[in-house]
Design a protein around this nucleic acid. Sequence first.
DNA 1: ACCTGAACACCGTTCAAGT
DNA 2: ACCTGAACACCGTTCAAGT
Lengths: 217, 217
Amino acid sequence: METTALTSRREPLTAARIVDQAMRIADQRGVSGLSMRSLARSLGFEVMALYNHIANKQSLLALMTDAVASTISSAPSGASPLAAVRAITISTHAALLQHPWATEQWQQHLPGPARTELMETLLRLLNESGLTPETAHHGFHAVTNHVIGYTLQEKSTVLVDEDATANAKIYLAGVSTETHPYMVAHVNQHLSGETASSFELVLDLILDGLERLDKRD
Amino acid sequence: METTALTSRREPLTAARIVDQAMRIADQRGVSGLSMRSLARSLGFEVMALYNHIANKQSLLALMTDAVASTISSAPSGASPLAAVRAITISTHAALLQHPWATEQWQQHLPGPARTELMETLLRLLNESGLTPETAHHGFHAVTNHVIGYTLQEKSTVLVDEDATANAKIYLAGVSTETHPYMVAHVNQHLSGETASSFELVLDLILDGLERLDKRD
DNA sequence: ACCTGAACACCGTTCAAGT
DNA sequence: ACCTGAACACCGTTCAAGT
């Protein structure tokens, strides 16, 4: 019986199993709470066993990040190109919210296979949408920067964490309404949940703007 | 003489001197290349001396980040509110490009005095520009996310580093034109510098979009 | 008040040795 | 082929001791 328990804990170590467990730990404790040593322990192995399957911590983080990219759903078939871009972007946002550590990692590694596929699809859709090649190029950056920037900001200030709200309150305690009225009002709007997420609103503003850009000429 | 050299090296340790030197090191080696031990050494002190002036490494990074915020120039007087937002945003982009490590740190700490001032100014300008309070709220996020997202992306893919170009080439070597034609074309556009920075273009697209949003109602 | 030596509890990674 | 013990060269931070 003990043997069974042990064997089940000791399912052969593979890169996939390591990445999986690392993601689970990062989801809970963040990247700073993920050490090679604790990761190995939690799988029932010693640290050095990991290095038989992955090159080093950097490449582990790259693999984890691409694993998040692989959970982003492709656009529903039949949608117009720009509607597909919209859908993929919203799905990217959702995937990043589920693994908050991934947003910081996103730009920190060269794209893996999954993210490469994602980028190729976005670029193709933008180019097939009727935009000029140059606007498609700009649009690609506008859209991807929006997801990254927005999610990064969201993670540190609103929702997601219960201690993000705590942080907002700590911050407010040090800012005076007299000297910084707009700042206090803005943070309070977030705390009260009065203002809905501007994620999709700004996304649409960007997509509309791209179309208008080409019609103007 | 040696005494003079030593004393000049040993100008009394202050928080300001520590932050200054830490920024210089981070500019050169990045945050990962900045250790409390090496920082102290480079100032001619032992590690533990630092803790008489700053609480810990986290708060040092927060101080460094706010120091970058303090270098952002305020808008030229006489400009319209939205033109001022535009100018401040462009200046933010420039400041972040000069201290590439700062972009990652930006959202990682509660805003210090300088960034608080900056945010207050942006919020005030947006609210005074004639936008509805809600659009002003969205606009604030749209604009700040754009700077952060764009600079983050820029840092990891174009200019700034000489080894960013190297990375792009390494990446390209692993991607086939047959399977990912748009991706290869996009990266090559960056490498050849054919497409100008879309930073201001997308910024204007956002600012125009905000104005149109309210006129529509 | 400010600086420091020694120590604590960690890191990631290499290498030679085991099966 | 895969796992491990011991070791290396680091970390940030505390604390008691020095001046």
